[in-house]
Design a protein around this nucleic acid. Structure first.
Lengths: 138, 138
DNA sequence: GTAATGTCTCTAGTGACTAGAGGTTCAAGA
DNA sequence: TCTTGAACCTCTAGTCACTAGAGACATTAC
């Protein structure tokens, strides 16, 4: 059994974030010492690692809740889990696409001014003021 | 002179968002009718278009504040503006990079399970539980 | 004149934490 | 056994960029 600080060190999740996850129902309420401090075991460590890994991959708290629910019922169909993963993948792909459009536009705008002139003549500012100076929709 | 609703329609920025921008100091306080309703002119429209365009490109409110400050002083050096644009571009590039790593990992994980089995055997859940199943760091 | 629509301010909620205040408990050394 | 300092506790409020809704007032069209 170890403390919340120890759990934090091992998982690289901040103490306050662990407490937050507990409040959100991602982590079961921890056992307590007689002095009311949380104590964790291997199961707690594994669950928090699962959560951290899923967060790193961009899953929302809500999605992780569903995944944990499934994990706790080994006999259920895992269709929901694959659906969650697939839609997360789609979201990531959509974000990449959008960001690539932004990147092109920003890079074009940035190149338009070397920063050595005066704000009145700045292509960056002009581009922002006038959407018509843009290459495409974004 | 036109109302906030009209401005909202023309710029596709929600009425409540316009008021929020005013509160944040991005938009000057609008003139008011005798009945206390906001009225805008061409200058207001242009400024809001500028803000919307910059937000679309992912600039923060704070960054936009600085850009507007520069716009209001046509004689100042535009170095700050190009710096803001460049660092925004860098941020976008960093995000893309990170998302691409996620995409690879998610796609690999997703492919590992067709969703027809049972949660106990699900590769998606197993991957999340065990970071060692991952291809690389993320 | 009336009714419908638009606008006003103010408060609170979103997601996923994070920081800090003020107080309590634990563990290690004397 | 006692003391001290680090770690822990709960609770509140702040972050960012909005968004929704309540309850009241203004404007506009008929």
């Amino acid at each position: 059994m170890f403390s919340i600080g120890e759990l934090s060190k091992r998982t690289k999740v901040k103490v306050s974030t662990i407490r937050y996850y507990e409040e959100m129902g991602l982590l079961a309420e921890a056992e307590r010492t007689s002095g009311n401090q949380r104590r964790y075991d291997k199961a707690g460590l594994e669950r928090l690692s699962f959560i951290r890994h899923a967060r790193d991959l961009g899953f929302s708290i809500e999605a992780i809740s569903s995944l944990i629910e499934l994990q706790d019922h080994p006999d259920r169909s895992c269709e929901a889990a694959t659906n969650i993963a697939t839609s997360q993948l789609e979201e990531v792909r959509a974000k990449i696409k959008r960001l690539k459009t932004l990147e092109k536009e920003l890079s074009r705008i940035s190149k338009g001014c070397d920063g050595e002139g005066v704000s009145e003549d700045c292509y960056v500012l002009a581009s922002l003021a006038d959407h018509n100076l843009c290459d495409r929709e974004h």
